[in-house]
Design a protein around this nucleic acid. Structure first.
Length: 432
RNA sequence: GCCCAGGUAGUAUAGUCCGGCCUAGUAUGCGGCGCUGUCACCGCUGCGACCCGGGUUCAAAUCCCGGCCUGGGCGCCA
């Protein structure tokens, strides 16, 4: 089978009244069969939607073939379009010819029609079949659209898309746990962020963005953590934290606006009434957050990180997107610029309890960076090449990283991050 | 690494507390038969399951121990 052979193919979503009387070819999987004895209705679905095909007893050969088709087999049907009496379809196709392209052998691991909903684990183990459920497919149509929206927003602002290495040398970056991999005679690690590279690149590319997967060997087991996740990263020269916060607002709002406009059917399948957030997003300082938490009976000292429970409380008070700014310097990584001796020029973007993005003004002076690293007790040797670039004329720059999968949770309303990833990787899942 | 919950036909569930009328119920699925407008088609009929190993007991899906797997949470998350 090839495209030439399918020249007359009409996607199910294109099957409209204008085609009445015309001969068409449909290809797709069998979603449902209703055999009434002398007439058989087959509901055929493809990536675009569904259609109803009629088989009449007069066409003996194909009628008998149709009565043997199993659900979820791939079939090719040709026939004439006519008006339909079906509840939710305007037209249908009376079959003239039927070919079983690929038989689905039962039992199947789950029922994509969703009549008996399968557990997430079962679904992920049979993902390709699971995505024949239009609701689940909708999530990934939205995902693709959201990515495209973000990319075009960056390009409009003059950003250059980059790809940084995913295999990196010694885990000098510290912090979160790295995955170790054999690298010929050496040991390498999987990158957990493009941080150092994207900063370096502002020296020449000025404004850069990257949309790629990164890896964290955290032993987290929650509904919002994964070992492999998609990160949207921005870094821009001659910008400060305020500038990149505006970029972030713009990216998020454009993305949601675009999805709301172009994915109406998909959002409807998810029962989602997607509201475009208003700019500017609310901003609270870390100190304000502590005060608010104190008023709710939670005592935290300055310098303590906000725990999930705290963010949960704050999320109830601040609905939708909001920034937490002015974090204590000690809570932020070495490359974040200080505001003074205590505070940093950084921000986190929250959506309710969920942390979506974090970023800030970066340190661009080598001596400051070296001091910060030394204060943390890090061996400068591991950062030698990175630090060197800061002696070649490093422009002041700021940036952020956003968890794309988490943004998608917000857009789709999925409560488990695994639902918005095709083949999620977590601590307990390495396959399929 | 820690805590909690769970594992019953292909899928999803009831039963488990308090062992015995469980010959394991229901829905959906799958097979057969009938039916010319279905649309979660319908009617009749059949098929199919107690995660694995050990223990207690006259008797284990049910209680105990170990293992494997899953879900949720904590911690962790530059």
């Amino acid at each position: 089978m090839n495209l030439k052979e399918l020249e007359k193919r009409v996607k199910n979503s294109e099957l409209k009244e204008e085609l009445i009387g015309k001969r068409v070819v449909l290809v797709g999987w069998v979603e449902d069969i209703r055999d009434l004895g002398k007439i058989i209705f087959i509901v055929i679905r493809d990536v675009s939607g569904k259609a109803q095909v009629l088989f009449l007893k007069e066409k003996k050969e194909i009628f008998e073939l149709a009565s043997k088709v199993t659900k979820h087999s791939i079939i090719k049907v040709s026939g004439f379009v006519k008006e339909s009496k079906a509840k939710d379809l305007k037209v249908e196709v009376v079959a003239e010819d039927l070919k079983i392209v690929a038989e689905a052998k039962h039992p199947l691991p789950l029922d994509p029609s969703g009549r008996v909903p399968a557990k997430l684990d079962t679904r992920l183990n049979a993902r390709a079949l699971d995505l024949r459920n239009p609701r689940n497919l909708a999530i990934f149509k939205i995902r693709a659209q959201a990515l495209q929206a973000i990319r075009s927003c960056f390009l409009k602002k003059g950003f250059i898309e980059i790809q940084t290495p995913k295999i990196i040398a010694a885990g000098a970056e510290g912090g979160a746990t790295l995955f170790k991999v054999d690298y010929f005679e050496d040991i390498a690690y999987l990158a957990q962020s493009p941080q150092l590279y994207k900063e370096q690149l502002t020296a020449s590319l000025e404004r850069v963005f990257e949309i790629s997967d990164f890896f964290r060997a955290e032993k987290s087991h929650t509904r919002r953590h994964l070992s492999q996740f998609t990160s949207v990263d921005l870094e821009a020269a001659y910008c400060d934290e305020e500038d990149v916060m505006e970029f972030l607002e713009d990216i998020v709002v454009s993305c949601i606006k675009d999805v709301a406009k172009k994915c109406k059917e998909e959002l409807a399948l998810l029962n989602r009434n997607l509201k475009v957030p208003k700019r500017p997003f609310e901003r609270i300082t870390y100190s304000q957050a502590l005060e608010e938490l104190y008023a709710m009976g939670r005592k935290l000292n300055f310098g303590e990180d906000l725990k999930d429970e705290d963010l949960g409380h704050l999320g109830k008070k601040h609905r939708g997107f909001y920034f937490i700014v002015d974090w204590p310097l000690q809570l932020k990584p070495f490359y974040i610029e200080g505001k003074n001796s205590e505070l940093s020029r950084s921000f986190d973007l929250q959506y309710g309890y969920l942390e979506i993005a974090s970023g800030g003004m970066r340190v661009s002076r080598r001596e400051v960076l070296e001091k910060r690293l030394k204060d943390l007790g890090v061996n400068l040797e591991g950062f030698k090449e990175h630090l060197e670039t800061f002696s070649w004329g490093m422009p002041p720059h700021a940036g952020w990283g956003m968890g794309f999968d988490r943004l998608l949770m917000v857009i789709t309303g999925c409560k488990n991050i695994r639902e918005v990833i095709l083949y999620p990787r977590d601590r307990f899942r390495l396959r399929p």
